[in-house]
């Protein structure tokens, strides 16, 4: 465990708390893509299936439980509690275009052709692109509530912080995980446009608005 990794994980935790806070205080899930949230549940369940057969640490155990539980809770909030505030007509990204390629890629590029290993690889590829329905929705509406942009910034920061973490581990532990690194770079890259607007507008006190 190094500082980058820890800050990354904390940023990930923060993003989830921000999202739940946004939904509960505004009593609305407006501006949040249900599809992206559903993809995250898929990602966590597929990856953390190893809770059943691999013990790493107490930290690791509780984080995994938290990510699965909180993502399911968010789906519940969106699907039942605040259902009327979700507008499916602007959340129209075709998730099969993400799930399909993630399945195919994980069957081809993996470390070992074993069921749980392929599930892990699938979850890595799927996570890399899971934010796309959310970003697509943002692009479509052209604006976002400030709190929603904080959620996305924390989520992007989590991924960005994993990169120095890998560099650090390369030098100190002599390990490289090409699958995680390539997928992680792609995932972080997807946030670049968003970060640009976030830093130049939201952090300057302006509303998040995309040029027409």
């Amino acid at each position: 465990m190094n500082l980058f990794r820890l800050l990354g994980d904390l940023s990930h935790l923060a993003s989830i708390f921000i999202l739940i806070h946004k939904i509960q205080t505004t009593r609305s899930c407006r501006g949040i893509s249900f599809q992206t949230q559903a993809l995250y549940v898929t990602v966590f369940v597929a990856r953390y299936i190893d809770l059943f057969f691999r013990w790493i640490s107490l930290y690791n155990f509780f984080m995994k439980i938290f990510f699965i539980a909180s993502s399911v809770y968010i789906l519940y909030l969106m699907k039942y509690r605040y259902r009327p505030t979700h507008d499916p007509s602007i959340d129209t990204f075709k998730v099969e275009y993400l799930v399909g390629p993630a399945v195919v890629l994980s069957l081809i590029f993996n470390y070992k052709f074993e069921f749980t290993e392929i599930l892990w690889t699938f979850s890595i590829y799927l996570e890399a692109v899971a934010i796309l329905p959310q970003l697509f929705m943002l692009q479509r509406t052209g604006e976002a509530e400030t709190i929603t942009t904080h959620y996305l910034a924390a989520l992007g920061a989590y991924r960005a912080l994993y990169i120095p973490n890998w560099i650090y581990r390369y030098f100190t532990e002599d390990v490289v995980d090409p699958i995680a690194i390539v997928a992680g770079l792609v995932q972080t890259g997807l946030y670049l446009d968003f970060f640009y607007v976030y830093f130049t507008k939201v952090l300057q006190g302006q509303k998040f608005e995309l040029p027409a």
């Binding site: 690791n60 994993y162 390990v175 995980d177 699958i179």
Partner: peptide, 10 residues
Amino acid sequence: PRRSPVKDEL
């Protein structure tokens, strides 16, 4: 470096 998956990450 060992090309090993770092499965201790989240």
